[in-house]
Structure formats: structure tokens, C-alpha cells
């Protein structure tokens, strides 16, 4: 058996795609597809999704289009033991929705205290400045999980959706070389 054949000799059994709910039925989509098709959010409120998209995009360009809000929404809507979030390996205590809600709340409270605007309403320059201070735990009056940890977790999520997928590897020009490829290129 040659190496290319062996790389794919065991086929994944439909385990790779994420299940999104559309019109009461479950469909398998990538987060980018879920966003493009306007799949309704299950757990996040619209303002929370707006915040996650804004933060994600500021952390890693293209995270919004890659479906970061749909990804996190889907992941915090399933049992913790099924979750694929980096939060899982960073010792965040489930339910993971609590962490994201606390993080978003802290970011928006701090942003409003500084500029009288939610984070998503800041211009790109001020978003960058805000994140730079957040990652260094330098925002006065911060109330929530440590800013540096919020930065690390949400940056990891954004890296995941932009660079961690088969499409992300392809975009960077790196061979993905799976033994068992995730379905839906995820």
C-alpha cells in the first residue's frame, strides 16, 4: 500500500461536520457555511454574536466570514464532553457559555467605560488598542475572567476557524496530509 493510500485508508464515519439546526432539522455544515446561510443561533443572543464576530475579526482577519460566532454558538449548545473548543484544554469549567458570556460582558463594560461604545462599535484602531491592553491585563476596572486569558481563548477560537481547517491550510499553502480527513473540510 503506498503512503497516499495509507493516509486515507481508514475513512471517517461522518464524524467531522458540525451539526447545525435549520428549520427544525439538523444539517452538517462548516461554520462558514452556517454563517453564509444565516443559520439561526441557538444560544448566543444577537448582541453577543455581534461582539464575538467583532472581537474575532480584530484578533484574526477573516474570522467573521469563517463563522466564528456560529462555531462558538454551536459548540456551547452541545454537551461539554462533545465540545471541540480550545477552552476545553485550557481548563475552563463547563458550561462554556458561562465563560463566553462573562468575557463578552467584561469587554463591553470596559469598552463602554472607556469610550461610551460597545466593542463592536469602536473603529479598527481603537479595537486594536483595546485588545492590546486587554491581552496585557492593563484595562482599569476590568470585571470578568482575566483579560489576558480572554485574549488567549478567543484568539485561539479565531485561529481555529481561520487557520485550523482544511481550507485554512489550503489558503496558507500547507499540505494538510490527513490520515482520516474531517468531513466538510473541518
Amino acid at each position: 500500500m503506498n503512503p497516499i493510500q495509507r493516509r486515507a485508508f481508514v475513512k471517517g464515519a461522518g464524524l467531522g461536520a458540525l451539526a447545525f439546526t435549520v428549520g427544525g432539522a439538523q444539517v452538517l455544515l462548516t461554520p462558514a457555511q452556517a454563517r453564509a446561510e444565516g443559520v439561526p443561533l441557538r444560544t448566543l443572543k444577537p448582541d453577543e454574536a455581534e461582539a464575538i464576530e467583532a472581537i474575532g475579526e480584530a484578533l484574526v482577519p477573516d474570522a467573521r466570514k469563517a463563522g466564528i460566532a456560529n462555531f462558538i454558538d454551536q459548540q456551547i449548545s452541545i454537551p461539554a464532553e462533545q465540545a471541540l473548543l480550545e477552552a476545553r484544554i485550557l481548563n475552563v469549567k463547563p458550561p462554556y457559555a458561562n465563560f463566553y458570556r462573562a468575557a463578552i460582558g467584561a469587554i463591553n463594560r470596559a469598552s463602554e467605560a472607556r469610550a461610551n461604545k460597545r466593542f463592536a462599535e469602536l473603529d479598527a484602531e481603537h479595537q486594536h488598542e483595546f485588545i492590546d491592553q486587554m491581552r496585557q491585563n492593563k484595562i482599569d476596572g476590568w470585571q470578568g475572567p482575566p483579560g489576558g486569558f480572554v485574549y488567549f481563548v478567543m484568539r485561539s477560537d479565531a485561529v481555529d476557524v481561520v487557520y485550523g481547517t482544511m481550507a485554512g491550510y489550503e489558503q496558507l499553502g500547507i499540505p494538510y496530509m490527513p490520515h482520516i480527513a474531517p468531513t466538510q473540510r473541518w
Binding site: A83, E86, R88, G164, P182
Partner: peptide
């Protein structure tokens, strides 16, 4: 599955 997500 060969994926950092699924490996978690």
C-alpha cells in the same frame, strides 16, 4: 480524526 479540533 486528523484535526486539532477533533483531537480535543
Amino acid at each position: 480524526i486528523s484535526s486539532d479540533f477533533w483531537g480535543r
